[in-house]
Structures are given as C-alpha cells and as structure tokens.
Amino acid sequence: MTEFVLTPQLIVTAVIALLIGLWLGFIMRSGTKRRALDAEARIAALSFDFNTLLGERDALKLERDSLDERLRPLAAEVDRLKRLEARRTSAGAEVPVDMAADPAVGAVGDLDALDVRRLKGVGDRFAAALAKLGITRIDQIAAWSGADADVIDSQLGSFAGRIRTDRLVEQARLLHEGRTTEYETRFGAL
C-alpha cells in the first residue's frame, strides 16, 4: 500500500479545485435566483394583466346590458310594425290599418312556429332527447325557471349543459314573446 503524501503541488491543486467549485456553485445559484426573480416579475405582470382584463370584461358586460336595454324597445317597435304590415298585406292593400291596434305579443298561429327545432343549437337528435322528456314546444322552454332548466339538463345525457351554453331559455322567451328582431340581433336569422 502506498502512503499518501501531502505535497505543496497537491495542496495548491486542491485549493484551486475548491475555489473553482465554489465559483461554479455561486454562478449556478445566481442564475437560479435570477430566473426565480424573473418568474416572479412575470407572474406579477400577468396578475396585473388578468385583473385589468377582468375589469374590462365587467365594463363590457355593463355596456352590453345598457345596449340591450336600448335595443329592446326598438326591436319591439320593429316587430310591431312587421306584424302590422303582415296584417295589412293579408287583409289587402285597400284596408287602412290602425297603428295603435296591435295584437298581444306572443300570439303564435301555426304549430311550426312552436317547434323546438327553431332554436339555435337544437337539431333533430337534441329535439328527440327533449321530446323523450315531453318537451316539444318553445312555449314550454320559455316558461322554465333556472331550477327547471337544471332539472331537465340533468336528464339530457350526452346533451347535458347545452341548455345553458346554447341559451335555450333566453331564445325561447324571445320567440314566444314575438320579439323576433331582438332574437335575430342576438342569435342570428331564423
């Protein structure tokens, strides 16, 4: 067995190796610290942006609600005028129409107007799923409360969640009340 001899060259090499190790450790640690500080700064900036976007979203919701309130009477007037024009043309051009006389909103003449397939997002399969639950007409959906919609939604199987995402109750109420202009503004042409 050989004996370990401590020579000045070995001591110098060990000290140099120790200093290089400490230096590398410091560099690696400072890089990690720098990345951590950068990540914290990015998180703070993203949090600020997120809060700003939430505020903008809320402001846009308020603006949308305000515009909806302004649109509602205008859409009702357009619908009233459409009904009057339809009545005038069906009665003949010679008959004067009293502009003040307007039938009750929501009077629906034909059964096709009541079919749930008129709602955006309701196709044949979804209509069949609703029919299994006894729902075949728009006026039934228009009468739902939030709790009613939740109960029906829980029974729809693969169509669960569609009542809220497709806004079926809102669509049904607009159509049932005869507010077609407002409906078409929000959901597109019938």
Rank of each mutant, 00 (worst) to 15 (best):
R118C: 01
A86P: 00
A14E: 08
M99A: 15
K33I: 13
G21Y: 04
R70Y: 03
D98A: 08
R80T: 02
D102S: 13
E69S: 03
A127V: 08
K132N: 03
L60C: 08
L10R: 11
M28L: 15
E56Q: 13
E56Y: 09
R137C: 07
L22W: 06
A128I: 10
L62N: 08
R57A: 10
L19V: 15
G146R: 09
K33A: 13
A36V: 14
G146V: 14
A17E: 09
Q140A: 12
L24F: 11
I20L: 09
A128P: 01
D148R: 02
G92K: 06
P8S: 06
G106C: 04
A91Y: 04
L119H: 00
E69I: 00
L67K: 02
R34A: 15
I11S: 09
L22R: 04
L111D: 07
A129S: 06
V108T: 15
A149N: 07
A86S: 08
A104S: 12
A59P: 00
R35V: 13
E77G: 01
V116A: 05
R118W: 01
L6D: 06
D102M: 15
A128F: 13
L6G: 03
A104L: 13
L71P: 02
A17M: 03
V108Y: 02
I138T: 05
T32R: 08
A86C: 01
S47C: 08
A107L: 09
G134P: 03
I16H: 03
R70N: 01
L24I: 09
L60N: 08
A36R: 12
D49K: 12
Q140K: 08
V116N: 00
A127K: 01
G146S: 13
D148M: 06
A91R: 14
V15M: 12
L60K: 09
I141W: 01
S47W: 03
V122H: 01
L71M: 04
L74Y: 05
F48Q: 10
G146W: 03
L6M: 13
D148I: 04
A142C: 11
D79S: 09
R137M: 10
V105W: 03
D102H: 13
D102Y: 06
I16Q: 05
G92E: 05
S30H: 10
D150C: 07
R70I: 02
S145M: 07
A147L: 12
G21V: 04
L71G: 00
D98N: 11
